[in-house]
Structure formats: C-alpha cells, structure tokens
Amino acid sequence: MADPILAIDELVKNFGALKATDHVSLDLRPGEIHALIGPNGAGKTTLISQIAGTQRPDAGRISFDGRDIGALSVAQRARLGLGRTFQVSSLAPEFSALRNVMLAVQAVSGSSFRFFKPVMRDPSLMEPAMAALERAGLAERAHVAVAELSHGERRQVEIAIALAMKSKAFLLDEPMAGMGPEGSSRLTGFLDGLREEAPILLVEHDMNAVFALADRISVLVYGRVIATGTVDEIRADPEVRRAYLGDEA
C-alpha cells in the first residue's frame, strides 16, 4: 500500500467541555476518495479546519507529504498543496469568478509581491484560471462578480480555485451543499475523475454521492471516529447504522 499523503494522528480539540475532535486518527492515500460522514455537529468541519490550519488542535499530529505541518500557517499549508473548499462558500465577493481563481494561480505561480504588471493583462494568470473555471463548468460566467453568482455557481468557483492551486490533496467540505440534483450528479462525475489528480478528503451529507465515490469512509460521531472501512463495510456496520445512517442504507 502506498504511503498516505495526509496522516492525522490522535488529534484532539476541545471547546470547553465539548470534545469536538476526540483522538481522531485517519489518513488519505494517493488516488483515493476518503469520505468523512457523520451527523451535524459531529466535528467534521472542525477537523477540516485543523488540517487546513484555521484552527489549532489541542494535541495530536498532522503530517502532509511527509512533513509535520502542525506549526505551519494556513497560507504555508496551502502552498504545500492542501487545497480546501469551504462548507459555506468563502470567496472575494466583489471580484469576478475569474479574478477569484486568478488569485489562486497567482499564489502557486510565484510571488504576490509584484507591484507593476497589471493582472488583467497577464496571460500566465488568466489562462490557467480560465482553464480551471472551464473544468469546473463555469467558463461562461467567468466575468460575473461572485456576489451576483448563485449559490451553486459559487460552489463551482470554490472547486475551480482548488483546481488552480494544483493541490496535492483536496479537502472538500460539503461541495454538493446547495446544488440541485443535476448539479450534484455532474459534480459526482467530476470528482470521480479528480481522484486521479490528487486524493480527496470529502465531507458530504449526500449519501448517494458518498456511496458512489468513496474508496473508504470514516464515520465521525461526537468527535470520535466510530468506524473506517469500505462502502460495504460501513453500510453493514451496526453501530454506524444506529448512530447515523438509520434506514437510509
């Protein structure tokens, strides 16, 4: 088995008496989609935030691409190749979709401390950004301000940004949220191919998508991983059925 690109070891995060992350260990291997499921409030987003660096764990280790990233800032982790999308779209609202993606291209293609060359006349920024938007299916709306885009379209911008970052691993926090059934099925097909490029840690409530995509599933309940396994193993797990899946599976 290939070495995991992302490994989380005994991660702990408490908010007062609430154990948001309770000794969580999991990993992400090359070429796979590892889905993280669980009821609301299970600590999925908190876990993603700790991996991305927006929150600091109280204890535990996170290593990425062979190095401990626990002490690194959000920006440093992103530059190492951790591409995150947000559960609630988090974009620069006054900028167009294209300029949002160009910012990601700019971040990977060298310094942001360049003061004179206009970005809107820089094909080395615009072309990759446009290509990413095209792959995310939003090329026609590239010049529309994000504030004027629909909820689903903003999700597509988030995906395009993650693509443009040339990430070595994707952390996708509910990418299907707010998308219509058609959008979800299109995105499912897209993510299916994306795993070849870089593995995906996928937080998702859409069980059809999860069962269709995931190579492995971890189930998070009250901050603890109660089970990790293949789709069939998770479907059959009695504890998971009781805690989360109910009749759905």
């Binding site: 920006a75 988090s90 620069a92 910012l103 942001s112 060359k117 940004i161």
Partner: peptide, 29 residues
C-alpha cells in the same frame, strides 16, 4: 493605479474582502 491592478493589488483587495480565502490559496494576508 499600477499597484491596484498588480498582483500585489489583487491580493490586497482580496484580503479586504475575505482574508480567510486569501490565506487558503496560500497568500499570507
């Protein structure tokens, strides 16, 4: 004008709008 239209200007104006996004693409706000 040059500054506002440059890479630096793009990053600066993006930090005004959403600094979490800026950090998440790898630019230190």
């Amino acid at each position: 004008r040059l500054l506002a239209d440059s890479r630096f200007g793009a990053a600066l104006q993006a930090t005004r709008q959403n600094d979490v996004r800026v950090a998440s693409v790898g630019i230190p706000p």
